[in-house]
Every structure is written in structure tokens, then in C-alpha cells.
């Protein structure tokens, strides 16, 4: 089976960045606060994109680098791709 790696920047993060492009159903290994952990992604994840480490409910913050990078616009399950289709920026929103 294909093995893949990811990078989690801070232990409070709820997303992981993949190293390389990863197919659906691939287990991705990453280091979380010194522990080696694995989550199987449920969708294909492109080079440099993110997947969820935990369930993120609609309206909850998406956290990377230990900081809020936006809010979930729908419920996101562990292993799902997190990007502009389900994450919304909170800043510079003259449209709101």
C-alpha cells in the first residue's frame, strides 16, 4: 500500500499538510507532539494541500500554525480535504 507523509505545524492544529500528492484511502503518517500518528485520507489530496485531523463542525475554526486560518463552511470529517470549498476566510470581507 502507498505510504505518505504529512506535516502538522503545531499540536493544537486540526489540519495536516501532505508531502506529495496522495490518493484516496491512503494512510498518511505525521508527527503530532512527538507521537507518530496515522490517518487514512478519504479523498485525493494534492501536493501541499490539507486534510482534517479531527471532526470540524460547520462554523468552527480551522487551526494551522496554532492559529485560526478560517471557519468551516460545512461539517468536515477526519481525513477529508480542507480547502476553499469548505473553509472560509474571515478577513478583508467587503462583501459581508
Amino acid at each position: 500500500m502507498q505510504q505518505a507523509h504529512g506535516i502538522v505545524m503545531k499540536s493544537v492544529d486540526n489540519v495536516c499538510t501532505v508531502v506529495g500528492t496522495v490518493d484516496a484511502a491512503t494512510p498518511v503518517q505525521f508527527d503530532l507532539a512527538g507521537q507518530n500518528e496515522t490517518i487514512t485520507v478519504t479523498e485525493p489530496i494534492s501536493f501541499g494541500h490539507k486534510f482534517a485531523l479531527r471532526t470540524i463542525k460547520k462554523g468552527e475554526p480551522v487551526v494551522k500554525y496554532g492559529e485560526v486560518i478560517g471557519l468551516a463552511t460545512k461539517d468536515i470529517e477526519p481525513g477529508q480535504h480542507v480547502h476553499v470549498h469548505n473553509l472560509e476566510s474571515c478577513r478583508g470581507r467587503g462583501d459581508k
Binding site: K64, Y65, I69, L87, R91
Partner: peptide, 15 residues
């Protein structure tokens, strides 16, 4: 940036 995996200005800025 978006194609490269950056989802928001906050994420871009933090990096």
C-alpha cells in the same frame, strides 16, 4: 496560491 494549497489570507499570512 489556492492551487498550491493555501485556503485563506490568514493561512498565507501565518506562513
Amino acid at each position: 496560491n489556492i492551487e498550491g494549497g493555501l485556503s485563506s489570507i490568514e493561512e498565507k499570512s501565518l506562513g
